[in-house]
Design a protein around this nucleic acid. Sequence first.
DNA 1: GTCTATAGTGCGATAGAC
DNA 2: GTCTATCGCACTATAGAC
Lengths: 225, 225
Amino acid sequence: MTSFCKLKESITISKQEICREILHKNRDAIKVKNETVAITNLMRIFEATLELSNQVGFQAMSVRELSKRTKLSMGALYSYVESKERLLCMLLQYGGALGHRSRQLPEHVSENSRDRLLASIKLHIYLTETYQSWFFFIYMQAKFFNKKTLARIVQEEEISEAYYQKILEDGCQAGEMKIDNTILTASSIIALLQDWYLKREKYRKLAVSAEQYADFVCDLITVKL
Amino acid sequence: MTSFCKLKESITISKQEICREILHKNRDAIKVKNETVAITNLMRIFEATLELSNQVGFQAMSVRELSKRTKLSMGALYSYVESKERLLCMLLQYGGALGHRSRQLPEHVSENSRDRLLASIKLHIYLTETYQSWFFFIYMQAKFFNKKTLARIVQEEEISEAYYQKILEDGCQAGEMKIDNTILTASSIIALLQDWYLKREKYRKLAVSAEQYADFVCDLITVKL
DNA sequence: GTCTATAGTGCGATAGAC
DNA sequence: GTCTATCGCACTATAGAC
């Protein structure tokens, strides 16, 4: 079985790398030409936006407060983010890289379905650990986006769900698992993985580690004594 | 086993009743003296607030828009709700009656732990079905409340969790269930019950009924083949 | 008890100096 | 590339007629 640490290495995406990607995608809206400066400040802006938004909500967060936190003046801030709405768009793009990678599980992990399930869950949990504030942000704001954007996010979840469902069905066919309703079961996996990053504080208090939680979820789904 | 319908009857709380309770608790802030008129309009205000808030978020919802939806002028609206913040407080009070009742399961339901678990889950799901917009609202806004208010809501969840944990432990002691980690398992039940009202649309598309979902959750937790 | 009109505030965004 | 100063707008909340 692939160890948790190895999994971590296999999906490490530098936040800087993501910011560079976003910078290039939004060249039209970003006035600052020096790439090094732009990336440094974009990173600070994104980080502060997530932090503030996750405290008071994106709508309630004022650009003035954001300017204080980033230690950029209003004017400087607006040479990175055309508008508050555009800032939101950029943060949505942030997910492009993540959602895709969360299903890039090396297929060779194991022939055994349960191992593949566990590896997938661990991969997912590690991703949400590293980018917790972003996942929290998207979940909490998604419901308030316009229909089109919401649809895109819901679709992301459906892809994840189908991915887990396939593992479960393969496991059943191979006789390694016995699962009545694979759709609802896959849906439960998603819900439990989301609970982990939505209530991070609670699990911290319970002193449950990421690895323990992954094992627990996997057992809940598959172990039928 | 107690039927779903019987359970429904046992916990039906009229929304009007709740509004009357809130009216009396907030007599100081509500200028309208005629109780019948006050309750009628309070109900409309609460309903519209939940609807609007769940579309755009409470902070983003404007009182102007609320006045349109309720067909009350700005002036009239403000003779019911001292301020937008006070309106939020009233909606929090709404939960007082609900949280309490959700654990008022008639003890005589069954001696069997699994039946008691299933009955509790069904009770919970029925409550969240009837008051879905309120539960959704609280979950989505809770994270943005001040620390004190958030603590109160988290405590509510802890009580629910302890309640489920006790059923699980009783079941284990009686030899009717075999559950390794009752804390995490109880926590999972909560997460899955929340998923039901947070993603109501998704389950509607999957054509899963409330009763089916309750059965599924209960099975996932207890059935060890 | 409800209305219209408006006061007062803080917001997102911009202009122009440096 | 960053700053300060400020514009115009939409918001919450209120005053006073009916």
